[in-house]
Design a protein around this nucleic acid. Structure first.
Lengths: 195, 195
DNA sequence: AGTTGAAGTGGACTATAGTCCGGTTATGGA
DNA sequence: TCCATAACCGGACTATAGTCCACTTCAACT
């Protein structure tokens, strides 16, 4: 009887295919742009059938999430256990500003992938694990710095201002510096907390 | 020679078809839910060919935008020339709070249509006329109430907190009241302006 | 009313996402 | 080593968005 909650180890062939798919997708997306790459071509480049691709990742959005997951781990590590001011050690206000800068940077860099990952069911962003992680992080810092605030709600607002849609939609119009300034102003105003 | 910048009046047959398409789409979307309605069936129900449908509205997102446009006019009228506190006459802070409530309500009611209208090219929301209108409105009120603020940026943040994606993603988790409270808190904090 | 050409029309066509299921293979136990 | 079984594989299949272009119709101007 298999141990509950601890599924058997992934089969060796499945692991090989998973890795092949991820690498092929990464390469093709970089070469041609995500929207120009069909799932068929990803499967072909990875040397697997279409069924395998969809079985593993559900749909194109799922594939994007898997790809982002790898890239996001780096930022997560820096935030959870890296050096201050991003990591622990600095006062919450400084950490918040540092996080905002880093996150805007991250979103800018991976905007196309993020956009695809949020395609499909509406509100998908709010259900994936990483959003919850960032939300907890921001809410904790806000609550720490400014107890009068409803930090849960404020954290959602801060993250909304850094959503992939906002960043891609306004980057062209405002430029990276001004975009960052907007988020920093938002964070500052929450931290000042004269509500 | 046709007058530049003032395109000829829409041809009568085109107007008839446009109206037929809009009405058919409205009915089908209400009956079956947007995602379950194919563009083919909209065309068939309207009694036009597929080519006509796509020529007029570009794609499914364009059709959604056209449908929203009608519904949005009501809110626009109330904001631009209706009675206070939503319309002119009340102090800017009050108008802002009133707008936030009304807009969250609007987004909640039309979330599926808004989601479809933002599908497709990323950042589509920021290019359609109505976003620019709301942004100008919010920015003007913020600038009026709190001159220290960078009102342009703050207005984007306020609208981001009320995007269709945020509302659909968090409505289930937080509920309508708490969602509204979050936006009200955001507005209050900007108005307090201790940045 | 007749002419003319621009705007509009419709349905066949292509490309792609995502489903399904019969056949195959890895894995753990005897 | 061999067996039973559950997971995995792959490609044919379906449904739908969106394109294209030869044909039709409207309306402005004689």
């Amino acid at each position: 009887m298999p141990v509950v909650g601890q599924p058997r180890r992934e089969r060796a062939d499945a692991a090989r295919n998973r890795s092949a798919i991820l690498h092929a997708a990464e390469r093709l997306f970089a070469e041609r742009g995500i929207s120009a790459v069909s799932m068929d071509s990803v499967a072909a480049a990875a040397g697997v059938g279409k069924g395998t691709l969809f079985r593993r990742f559900g749909d194109k959005a799922g594939l994007a999430v898997a790809l982002l997951d790898e890239r996001e781990r780096e930022l997560q590590a820096a935030v959870l256990s890296g050096p201050p001011p991003l990591g622990p050690g600095a006062p919450p206000g400084e950490r918040l500003h540092a996080f905002a800068s880093a996150y805007v940077e991250f979103v800018s860099r991976h905007a196309p992938l993020l956009h695809v990952s949020e395609t499909g069911s509406p509100g998908a962003r709010y259900r994936i694990g990483s959003y919850r992680l960032w939300h907890r992080h921001v809410a904790a810092l806000l609550a720490d710095a400014q107890p009068d605030l409803d930090a849960e709600l404020a954290a959602h607002a801060v993250l909304a201002a850094m959503s992939a849609d906002v960043v891609t939609g306004l980057l062209g119009e405002l430029g990276a510096d001004r975009l960052r300034a907007g988020v920093q102003q938002l964070v500052s105003v929450y931290l000042a907390g004269c509500a």
